[in-house]
Structure formats: C-alpha cells, structure tokens
Design a protein around this nucleic acid. Structure first.
Lengths: 214, 214, 214, 214
DNA sequence: ACATGCGGGACTGCCCGTTCAT
DNA sequence: ATGAACGGGCAGTCCCGCATGT
C-alpha cells in the first residue's frame, strides 16, 4: 500500500489518448523492466538481508545500470514499499454503491482488492510485508506511508459523501487501516500459513462489532 | 506514549525496602533531574529547532554533564518521545471494572489518563506531539513506538480477560490507538486551540458507533 | 548443501501435465544449462580466483547472456553454494525405516546420499567446499546456510516421529551437521587425498560413542 | 564467546608484574570506559536497530570521540560479539579433573562458566545473542567466530589429553558447540523466559545419550 | 619528567542518490 | 536513455598535539 513514485510511463500529455494504459510496446517493456528489478531485489533481500544487499548488486542481477535502478525506483526502500494498491483501493472505494456506509464501503473495497492481489501476488506480498515489518529502516518508513494511505482513504470517503474530510472520516479511515495492518501482521507472524483474506475478514468483523462488545 | 528506557531508579539493592517505589529521596531527585533535562530540551527545540540543538547545549542548559544526559535518556530522540504515559495507561486499563468490555475499558482509561495529563502537562504534550509530527527524524521513529504501545495495550486487555493475545484483542488495541492518534493529530493541526479531551471523546464516539453507521 | 533458489522449472502453465517433474525436454535443457553455467564458473574461480572472476566472464564462457545467469542463480555467491543435496538428504531421511532412531536415520541418510554424490560429483564437491571455506565472502554466508540446512534436517526428523520440532530434535540435527562439516573440513584440509565417506563414517562413530567416552 | 580483540590494557610484557590485572587507576578507567561504550551501544541497538545506529551516535552517547570507540573495539560488530568468555571457558576446560572424559569436561566447564555468566550478565547476554541471531551482518560473522571458538575448545581438549588435535577431538568440540548454540537459540526464541542453564543441561543430556537413542 | 591514552582533523573506501553530457 | 562523474554519509585509519596518572 502507498506507492509514492510514478514509474516512467511517460507523462499524461505525451501518451496518445487513443491507447489505454499499458498498450504501447514501450510501456510494456518498462513495466517488464520494473518487475524484473523488483523480483531480483526481493530475492536478494531474502537471501542476504536488506541492508547487506547493495543497489549495485540488484542492478547487476537485473542487468541494468546502477542509474537505471533509480529511474524506476526513487530509493532502495521504494523497491520494497512500492505497489499499485493505493489507487486500486481508492478506485474501489469510490465505486462502491452509494447506499453503503463509509466503513462498509471501505471493508468491501479492501476485501475485493485484496482478493485480487492475493490471487496473483501472494508470495511477493508476503516477502514484502515480512521485510517491511522486520527491517528497521523499512519499519520506520511504514508510519509515514500509512499516514499517506490514510489520507487517500479519507479523501475517497469524503468524495463519496460529497463532504469535507471531517474528524469522523479520519477516524474511520485510521481504524480501518489499523485493522488491515493488524491482519497483515498476524499473517506474516504465522509465516503466511493462514489465509490472509480470512484474517482480514475476521479483523473487520471485530471492528464492525465494536459497539456491541463495548 | 511509549517510553523504552528505564531511568536510573537505583538498583534493587540500593532502594530502601521500606518505601514503595518513588518515595525515597534519591528517586525523587532523579525524577526531578529527568524532568529538568526534558524541560530545557523542549524549550531549546522550540526556540532553535530540533536538529540545530546539540546534546551538549541541552546538558549545559540543564546544568548536568553530557554523560548524565545519556544516563537519563538513551538518545536525543528519546527526550522527546519519552513519557511515563504507557505504564499509567496500562495500569488504568487493568484497573477498570471487570464488567466493562475491552473497548469501553480502553476508552475510559484513555479518557481518565488523558484528563490528568492534560491538566498538568498540556503545554509539554503539545510541544512534544508537534515536534514528533513535524520532525522527520522523530516522525520516522513514531511507527515503531506506536507498535510497542499497541502491544502493551493488547497485553493489558488480555490480562483483564485472562486470555491470550488474540487477533480480536489486537484489532481493538490497534483501532483504539489509531483513534487516539487521529485526535492528537487534529489537536496539533489546530494549534492546540481545541480541547483535546473533547476531541478524543468525539473520536471514540465515532469508533463505538461504527457498527450502526456501517 | 542448502540451495535457496528454485531454478526456472517453467511456470505451472508451461509444464506439460502428463510428465512428472524433470522429464520434459524443457526441464532437462534447463537443468543442463544450469550445470553448464556452474561448471564454467567453478573452472574460472579455480583458475583466476573467486573475486577476480566477474559474472560477465562466467556468462560469456557458458555462452549465455548476463541476464540468463541471474535467471538461474540469484547471485554470484549462489553459483558456489547452490546444490540439490538438501532435498535429496531430506528425502533420504524421511524414507529411512521407521525403527531407526533419529541419529541412525540421519547418519545412514547422509552416508547414503554422500556416497552417491561422491561417486558422480566428487571433484565439483571438493572445489566448491574449498572455495566456500577459503573465500571470505562465501565463508561469511556459510553460517546462514548451515542454519537453514539444520532447520530442514530437524523438520525431516520431526516428520518421521510425527512430532513437533523439539529441543532434542534440534540438538541431534545440529550435532550431526557439525559432525558432517568437521569431516568435510578435514577432507578439504587434506586436499581431498583421503576418502570422504570414510572420514564421515569415522566422525559419526565418534558422535555415536559419545555417551561411552563421556 | 570468541573475542578477537584485546582492549588496550597494555601487553603483558609492559605491565608491571607486581600488580594483578585491573589494579592501577588507568586500567580501571579503561575497563569502565569499555563497559560504558558497550552499554550505550547495546541500548541504542535495541532502541533503533543495529544498522540504523551509527558509531558516531554511540560515541556521543558514551561521551567519547569517534576515534576512542575504535580504540576499544576494532569494529562496530565487535561491540556486540566481544566478551571474555572464551578464555574463561578454556581455563575451566583445562582445569577439569583429568579422569573426566573430553565430553564430560567440556559439558561441566560450560555449565560452570555459564552459571557464572548467567548470574551477572544475563540481560546483556540475552540482548547480545538476540542481536547476533537477528542481524544479518552479525549472523554472518557468527560462523567464523564459532570456528575460532571450536579450535580453542579442541586445542584445550588436546592439551588435557597430551595429544594432537585429532578428528575425534574436533568432532567432540564441534558437537558440543553446536549443542550450546542450539540451547542459546532456543533461549532467545523464547524471549529469555526459560532458564538458560537448564536448557543447556537438557541439550547436553540429549548429546550424551545419543548412542543409546541412536 | 615520562609514558600513555585521548581527541581533532583529515583521509580512504564503500554505498546511496543526483546531475550532466552525450 | 545511458554512462560517468559527483556529493554526502558512514566505517575504519593515521598522525599529531594535549592532558593525565605514575
């Protein structure tokens, strides 16, 4: 969650409007390079540890120059943190039926988005989350990233309600994100043996029943 | 919230067994020194900025040696992060009447603890929170500290229920802490003009009514 | 011992379902490529030294691209460390007759596996072990790899006993692996002139008679 | 286990023979400085993580210069690895009654030495061991350090037997050290809640009964 | 007075991240 | 878009001037 760097897809003005995103040969090559770099990086982090792996090694493994690495990722940390989940989730939140309350919309959007991610990127998600939780340098940045994601969620909820970002909306976004993070933490603590969507579902059950339980 | 450093309370052998912790002259002097250092540090941070203030300046302002500073705080960051709120809150959580549910216990303990803190340390709390939120080096450490506090809250709730730390307990602790943090952030963003206990109360109202709002 | 990288066996969709793993033409070609790269790498390491040999040289000697090298090995170190002995040994341990005690099963599995390896890969094993013991960058990684192998051994023993991984099982696995490593070290120190299976046998004799010797 | 750096106590030849080690004011001050540096370093490693802590911070916390740090410890890693246990244990091994077999002598010496260490340095030992096992940079060096300790143990056993260092002696030393390491690992995995001497005792019980269990 | 440890500043080498020229 | 060169930070080293215990 929370990518802070738009990869070189060409700025919106250059991209011919006739082609949907990801069609051009160049774009596909770039996405491929990006994936290649990330895969090699995660494999090396897993094998040697995050700090012990240098950017030069990653670049050499992915057969690109030191510089090209930084063209695709603004920092070494970003290669672990980077995903495209935030815009996906924001889109899902905004497209939820308008009769759903804020928390239901958030929960359903997260469940929906996560099931897609889980189906295709399960292993990468596990490795990345484990690294983020176990590496001091990354865990430190997590706080900042979560705040950014929280702001996005709050803004998406406010848009649904045609409202400003109130304290109420911020609390809902913060609580939901804390719930999601708790489920993710439990998942990696169990070495990924449990089913993440179920954990997330259980966690949100707790949240939605808070009033009753008191 | 979340001190990670036990100040020099004197080893068990020095402490007179007849007096409960905190009574002896030595202990009071040490607590006084600690407070003095922290006050001077916050004053200097406020006037010169965090990064521009060196440990040597703080020590000389508090009229102690560089070494004594580090006997009370493990690092320059700790002087801002360190407070005794965690044990206070944990104690309040555990002493809530046993018929209260986990969230009610947490909310009431936080409201109670915060009203005490607010009455005596309002200005220091505002300065410290503002520094933590606005100083990169401190904001980075915030994530780790929040996780530690969350674990303490979860453990306190588990103790109340004579239970292990389950996913449910962790979700409640995480959501409550996220709620508290949201209120604190709103308070600082409003420059401390609003009433913090009211903000916290409003925020917890949102959390406890989540099921209804959906 | 202890490969940490699954070579490209082809994704599930490419592999013809009719053939068990290892039979298809593609798989055989890939295993062949992998072996070719490793052989050229070891030859170059032996003649020029590990550090003085670059990945580019290995790739060009094996007549593959730089990128292909990293598709088969995650790093330059892995080309020395990587072998398929761990799964072989784990399989042998689990298939030992169930009346054998843990240490006997381990010892017999190791003796069996090693005699096969020794018959076909003796020279490569000698070169690789010598490199690992004499190259600082590789010796450093040895510790981590041994821990991983130890965990696999312990898990295999636990599976045989339908038990959890207890302290007892871990001690047996650790002691057996230390014994094996000692024999390997003695073998390399004697420049491979002595017979490795005999050394291993002698070493395990010492281990199994520890109670008597006191 | 396994210190590699003698702090500046003055070499044995320079030190006036009339004074027992540690008598002069200078020596005591140096030992004190060394302890101070180590304590601050461990506290900072615990609070911020090993890699995120710089030598400059440690030095500043201990109120010494960057340079003085390196006078006392040859590297940042050494401040975690360094202890005086190896000579202690070697001495205990050599002074065991000569009728004890090699393994009994090793086991009793380790149990004896460990109980002393445990009584006075339990917390530091826990922190240091945890750091070594959980920090890639330190875990990597562990292998090398263990080999060095193993050689010392083997040499001490050989001296007791007025023998050369044979394969048998090396196997015994390696197995005993693997056993000790397994107990230490189990100890930190349990967060230090169990009793280390008991764990070590249990682990050696397994080792001495290997022949019977087979 | 002498020896020795300590601090300051500068230097190497490695690594992250950026800029510039092509 | 790539390569080469650069700035900044950190680990680790060296030399020299200074203070302190013996």
């Amino acid at each position: 969650v929370s990518p802070r760097h738009r990869p070189p897809t060409g700025s919106a003005s250059e991209r011919p409007a006739t082609h949907p995103s990801g069609s051009g040969l160049r774009e596909r090559r770039k996405a491929q390079t990006r994936r290649t770099i990330q895969e090699h990086a995660l494999r090396l982090f897993l094998s040697k540890g995050y700090d012990a792996t240098t950017v030069a090694e990653i670049a050499s493994a992915a057969d690109v120059s030191h510089m090209t690495f930084f063209r695709y990722f603004p920092s070494k940390e970003a290669v672990v943190e980077s995903d495209d989940y935030d815009p996906l989730l924001v889109g899902l939140i905004e497209n939820r039926p308008s009769e759903e309350g804020p928390l239901s919309a958030l929960r359903n959007a997260v469940a929906d988005g996560l099931s897609r991610i889980y189906a295709t990127d399960r292993d990468a998600l596990l490795v990345r989350t484990r690294l983020i939780l176990h590496t001091p340098a990354l865990r430190a940045r997590m706080g900042t990233n979560l705040v950014a994601t929280e702001d996005l969620f709050a803004a998406a909820l406010a848009a649904r309600l045609h409202s400003d970002v109130t304290l109420e909306i911020r609390v809902i976004a913060a609580a939901a994100l804390a719930t999601l993070t708790t489920a993710l933490t439990a998942w990696v603590d169990g070495d990924g043996l449990e089913d993440l969507p179920s954990l997330v579902d259980d966690a949100f059950d707790v949240l939605t029943h808070l009033a009753a339980e008191g």
